[in-house]
Amino acid sequence: MKRIFHFIRARARKVLLEEIWLEDYVKLGMKIGRDCSIQPGVIFDYSHCWLIEIGNRVTIAPEAYILTHDTSSKSLIGYTRIGTVIIEDDVFIGARAIIMPGVTIGKGAIVAAGSVVTKTVESEMVVSGIPAIPIRSVTEQKSKLQQLMDSSKCYDESYTLSGRISAQKRETMMRELLGKSGFVR
């Protein structure tokens, strides 16, 4: 019964609030691969979403923007610039990153949170900044993170919401991480 209620509530919300769901983009021609994790608040360019292709096992963090048009050209030349956005397999796009038209993000690349990607990203590269520039390879990033993890506090799944973290563990985690970072499985 609870499932039916949630289904009806979600459908009513979609109609009343005129929400656009992934299935709406797909119906218009956007391509999304298998096993992708697209977090809440991601904005896809609805006006030209058929120019977007997302590969397999792609993660897009909350509030990222994937744009296929740039209207800033309209007042200058009377036309809006448009371009494809191709996101290849195994890519990670951080929270609030902006992907501009005409960009391909290569296989296994990582786009740091808040970055603005204006040019194609090579496979297995980490990019960051405004505009995003390559900062290191994914292999170098993994090594750097491993070194950091070796000298940091690490927590198991019981320190997560899905692991039903207790009030005591939340307090402990807060105290242990004050002013520094750690890792959780």
Results as ranks from 00 to 15, higher is better:
K107W: 07
I60R: 04
V127R: 00
S123T: 11
M125R: 13
S115F: 08
S137Q: 03
G106K: 06
P62W: 03
P131H: 10
I82G: 00
G106F: 02
G78Q: 12
I82D: 01
S73W: 13
I86R: 15
M100H: 05
K107N: 15
I133A: 13
Y79V: 09
I82L: 04
L67E: 10
S123Q: 12
R96A: 02
I87G: 10
I99Q: 01
V121N: 03
M125I: 12
K74Y: 14
K107T: 13
I135R: 08
K107E: 15
S73R: 06
S137M: 03
K107R: 15
G78P: 08
E63K: 11
V121P: 02
A113Q: 09
I77K: 07
A109N: 10
I86S: 04
P134R: 08
V117W: 07
A112M: 11
Y79N: 12
E122M: 10
G108I: 11
T80D: 09
V85D: 09
G94I: 03
I87C: 09
G114W: 13
M100Y: 11
Y65H: 14
R81V: 13
L76E: 11
G94T: 05
A113C: 06
I82H: 09
A61D: 14
Y65A: 06
S115M: 03
P62Q: 13
H69D: 04
E124T: 00
M100K: 13
K107V: 09
S128F: 09
V126W: 02
G114Q: 07
T120P: 02
G83T: 11
E63T: 03
I87Q: 07
G114E: 10
G94P: 05
G114H: 11
V127D: 01
E88D: 14
S115H: 07
V117H: 07
S72R: 15
L67W: 15
T120C: 11
V85T: 05
A95T: 14
G108A: 08
I87K: 06
E63Y: 15
S123Y: 00
I77E: 10
V117L: 08
Y79R: 15
V91G: 07
L67V: 02
D90A: 01
S137T: 15
V85S: 06
V126R: 01
V103T: 11
I130Q: 10
S137V: 04
Y65I: 05
E122F: 00
S72N: 14
G102L: 06
V117G: 04
A109P: 07
I110T: 12
V91Y: 08
L67P: 00
S115A: 15
D90Y: 09
G102R: 10
V85H: 09
P101R: 07
D90W: 01
